[in-house]
Design a protein around this nucleic acid. Structure first.
Lengths: 257, 257
DNA sequence: AAGTGGTCTAGACCACTCT
DNA sequence: GAGTGGTCTAGACCACTTA
């Protein structure tokens, strides 16, 4: 019986191992995994632990289960992000692209009203402001404006943002990014933005705004806006339907409420 | 000790109960829930079961946990959909709106190329086609075109789509919708669409395309496109960051791999 | 009937937070 | 130190699938 709690949790290790097998091609789409009882034996884990690993991989879209049949590797279409919070640049890199990042500004400035309200700070309070133009294959893809609250912001400003993504820096500084809210809208580009993106003024663009939190309670640490050229970008996600276990008022055996 | 497996699972019942307490106002944002051990006792459940219920509510954004402190009701901002697969009309109704649905067409026709390719059927195969214009407060909001594969499609066509949402009908027919993929893009409206939406030709619109599956394996059952007036709609989601338990090659105590 | 995933129990130790 | 969530074990029965 092994000692508890050294290193990372066992279920995380199992997840990693399975992901590796898939990444390396040992397991391909729709291949069955060993049964849960077999995995227990093979790695000396309890079924609960095995199921926690598999369960998370299912909810990440890496695997799927069929009652009575088995657990299988999901086809690529599902490996897509289930609405993961990923930095704008980070996302491109994960898809194997080599974005060219030009930093147009990186300063400390008083927060503009919109940013202040989203960050829940008084307008005019100092924030770090970073403006970047991201290009792929020599052609502009999107324009990004990021506002960071002071403590994190100052540290981020002192790094080389053409090489490291903002999220990577933030996390390296010890702020574990956890969640965010995102808004997408279609807009028409104003003159200045159109010029930077090298399209005609009035061209359509996908506007994405993100507010990022370290946890569910404390105020946000980042507010970012991005303008993507509509002709070069579309946003993709996977969606799950909440099995709404809905309004059957049948109490059944019930709990001793 | 209660009997197993009557009615819905115990953890689902617990979830329902907690959701009810929140909906009814007994529990408000940031209120602490009873501890897990206390919930065990109160309802005669094991800790595992309690944790499964709480865990799912956390991942749905209804609750949040703080190690060493407790479990709390998430503020409204988190109750937002975590990328839930919801019908276009359904979504509006859930937000308490009363959309006016005009059915522009509802017929059987050969699948156009785009729809056929998304639905993984040969182009020209018969599908149900439904075109609707949805308005709120007497003003058009979006235009929706839905293509359904034959078996489901025929049944859906025979219902009153101004009253019931397409997803509701599909599920009533015994096809439990599970997941989908979604693409968002910014576009410029062509003449015909602009006229229907009562905006100027060339106005920007948010284009949302959805492919819907009953499970991870079988081909999709629905392909839908919607064009939202950019001036009246934006798309919101909550995002979670995958705690990527990343590349620490520290094997720790490891598993007996 | 055998194998697989789905639900559940009872009990344990660890790590974090607060006082 | 007491309380809370986080991880883990060993073992059980149920429901579904396949043969």
């Amino acid at each position: 019986m092994p000692v508890h709690g050294a290193d990372s949790p066992l279920y995380v290790q199992l997840k990693r191992l399975i992901k590796l097998r898939i990444a390396s091609g040992q397991l391909k789409a729709h291949d069955p995994l060993p049964g849960e009882r077999q995995l227990m034996q093979a790695y000396g884990l309890s079924r609960t632990t095995v199921r926690q690993a598999l369960g998370e991989l299912v909810s990440e879209g890496v695997l799927y289960r069929r009652h009575g049949k088995g657990t299988f590797v999901a086809p690529r279409r599902l490996e897509q992000n289930l609405a993961t919070l990923t930095g704008f640049v980070e996302e491109l890199r994960e898809r194997g692209m080599r974005p060219l990042v030009q930093v147009l500004s990186a300063t400390v400035c008083p927060a503009p009203v919109e940013a202040a309200s989203q960050l829940q700070i008084p307008p005019g309070e100092e924030v770090a402001f970073i403006e970047r133009l991201i290009s792929i294959d020599g052609e502009p893809l999107f324009l990004d404006r990021t506002y960071l609250v002071a403590p994190v912001g100052l540290a981020v400003l002192s790094t080389d943002l053409t090489k490291e993504s903002i999220y990577a820096v933030i996390e390296r500084l010890g702020y574990p990014i956890r969640e965010g809210t995102q808004t997408l809208a279609a807009v028409r580009l104003a003159g200045a933005e159109a010029r930077l993106l090298r399209v005609r003024r009035g061209s359509p663009a996908l506007f994405i705004r993100r507010v990022t939190y370290v946890n569910a309670v404390s105020p946000p640490i980042e507010y970012a806006e991005a303008l993507y050229r509509a002709d070069r970008y579309q946003y993709q996600t996977r969606l799950l339907r909440h099995q709404n276990a809905s309004y059957s008022s049948v109490p059944g055996r019930g709990m001793n409420s």
